[in-house]
Write a protein that binds this DNA or RNA. Structure first.
Lengths: 364, 364
DNA sequence: CTGAAAGCGCTTACAG
DNA sequence: CTGAAAGCGCTTACAG
């Protein structure tokens, strides 16, 4: 059997024409049997068999580009995420895991676009919609509404944790306020009263929701809100580390909080690093809680008590909603916002506070 | 200005024909100006300007599927990785980071294929080479040579940490044996003599290389090799946890190793969890070292001393080699194996051993 | 019910 | 140097 080669002699994938030739029929007949859904029934059984055999022999696979061009559908979804110089994070890892699994189950490909900055790279989004994908998932976009207006109308979008309502983009999020409230209540129930909250970037919708939940829980327990125990950071480990280090330095000798609730697991890890450096033991000297339940929370020692967002399920849902929108272009989505419940995950980083007060240690 | 729509009325991306029409020229002329490299110089400046203006107005972008079909190149590379029920790991995260950054720099797309099992899913690999990608990166494949023979000849492949020589696949790896040897030497230099090595899956090339390096270092220091201090695990956190738990149970009351060298960071984390449960403090009671320097090593408390493999750089290199192979199909690669150096990363999980011997504690 | 033609949106080899 | 045609590998609407 001779394998197909292109003019320059390098091997080439078999085409419908190759299969037809090998089976002694037209390329169309081969198409009907191999790729066509209903038409295939009208080919004579013997011919059908010959075609199938030839296809198997030649390892025929329909060319994706050709099929995409003809069907105006490439069976590929895209996801866009910010990467910091090639460094991806745990949030990305969880969401991508869900996306890949569900896309694969629907026999859809996934392509990942890395951008540096939502604002600066917003114009690039349009360029991604040039036939290489059928729809796009935006991961934690901080696009302005104005930038979102420029998204092309011929491609459907779904966002996860969008930072503001985006026109014509379905948003998937979780009940972050309730999660923060519940976590704070848990800390209070353990006996903590002097509780710090290390926040996400102020103004970000996810950060503000957690702050609201935190304050509500304090109010519910009649614990006065102490502004100095609200410590702003970003959503990163480095940010958590820097913030906590700065705070301890500024408050040396003053009473340490007995518990720290962090805006996400990454921030919590940054804080844990600083505590370790300072000789503070978690949870014996200080309790700490995260948010998200990423792989990071499971691989920390001690393992992190955290509020789980079902990130894999959310990524998975993003794919499903996107596929629905791809199937019915132009149709209004059933819901513009889909909210997932959060769930408390008790691990080892929170315990009851010591009776004796601890003071902020000296930091190198 | 009217936006293009398809027959069913839904919005459609602008085509070369749309641009030509808007500018009063043929689609070919538009192509020459917008996408052609050399031909564009021959179009009159005024026409050129009209075409450019029309393209901008219509937000024209060349359709990827059409271009791919015509050029037999889709400017997309694929990467294949095993996922466990949607759960990706730190190794994947690092490598993908490098791949995305470098692919992006070359203006190439990246699509990620998740498989469950190299052996069972080997036949699927061929199906991925159906025009949707120009080349494929295999992440830590445990393919047999026989399965690799079935890889299609029309697509170039690059592997990272392949578990055996794959015909016609360039392999990228690191000097794992030397890394293991160096790490073990470091532990010895700190004063450790009773050193355990928690291995990867026996028979895997990466696991065996580490074992060889470990043994060489012991021999070099005239420390007799103790078979009972070789503890097999897989490359996962759960595997490390189970293995260490089992070992401690089986050796209760016997002397604890003073240092543990783990086959990767994930395994080290599993061991750290078990030590924490058992009331053993790292590094005071027991030192521990990992391998890889993934994000996990940086987010452990105490931070993990580990042997760095430059995983991002390796992913990045995989892309470069793959692109070279795509550019010159059929050409023999310059090297079949590319070996990266490893690098010691000293953090906080290793210290000098205590003078008093510690015995294996009771495990719940 | 079947087969041959037109078309998806590009690029490129080839006449003029 | 330029323009119109053929072709990439499929699918589908449409004659017979």
């Amino acid at each position: 059997m001779k394998r197909p080669t292109s003019k320059n002699g390098s091997p080439r994938a078999a085409t419908l024409a190759d299969v037809g030739r090998a089976a002694g029929v037209s390329a169309m007949a081969a198409s009907a049997v191999l790729n066509g859904a209903r038409t295939s029934s009208r080919i004579a059984a013997a011919t059908r068999k010959r075609i199938l055999a030839a296809a198997a022999r030649l390892h025929y696979r329909p060319n994706v580009a050709a099929r995409a061009l003809a069907k105006r559908r490439i069976r590929t979804i895209g996801m866009v995420a910010v990467t910091d110089e090639g460094a991806l994070n745990h949030y990305f890892l969880e969401v991508l895991g869900g996306i890949l699994a569900t896309a694969g189950a629907h026999d859809e490909n996934t392509t990942v676009f890395a951008i540096h900055d939502w604002t600066k790279d917003a114009p690039r989004l349009r360029g991604m919609c040039d036939g290489r994908i059928d729809g796009l998932i935006l991961m934690a976009p901080t696009l302005t509404r104005a930038a979102a207006e420029l998204l092309p109308a011929h491609t459907p979008f779904v966002a996860l944790h969008a930072n503001c309502r985006l026109p014509n983009v379905v948003n998937i999020e979780s009940d972050e306020e309730r999660g923060a409230q519940e976590m704070t209540r848990y800390l209070i129930a353990q006996g903590h009263r002097r509780i710090m909250h290390v926040t996400g970037p102020r103004g970000f919708i996810g950060a503000e929701r957690r702050i609201r939940g935190f304050k509500k829980a304090l109010a519910g327990a009649k614990i006065p809100f102490d502004e100095s125990l609200l410590l702003p950071a970003d959503f990163s480990t480095a940010g958590g580390r820097a913030a906590m280090r700065g705070w301890l330095r500024a408050h040396r000798g003053e009473p340490l909080p007995t518990a720290v609730f962090c805006a996400n697991d990454g921030v919590a890890i940054g804080c844990m690093e600083v505590f370790a450096e300072a000789g503070l033991r978690v949870p014996d000297d200080i309790s700490i809680a995260g948010f998200d339940d990423t792989l990071a929370a499971r691989t920390t020692v001690p393992a992190l008590t955290t509020m789980r967002q079902p990130l894999q399920a959310m990524g998975s849902r993003a794919v499903e909603v996107l596929l629905e929108r791809i199937q019915r272009p132009g149709a209004k989505p059933a819901k513009n916002t889909i909210v997932f419940p959060v769930e408390m995950v008790v691990r080892a980083s929170v315990t009851r506070p010591r009776t004796a007060e601890i003071r902020c240690p000296r930091i190198a």
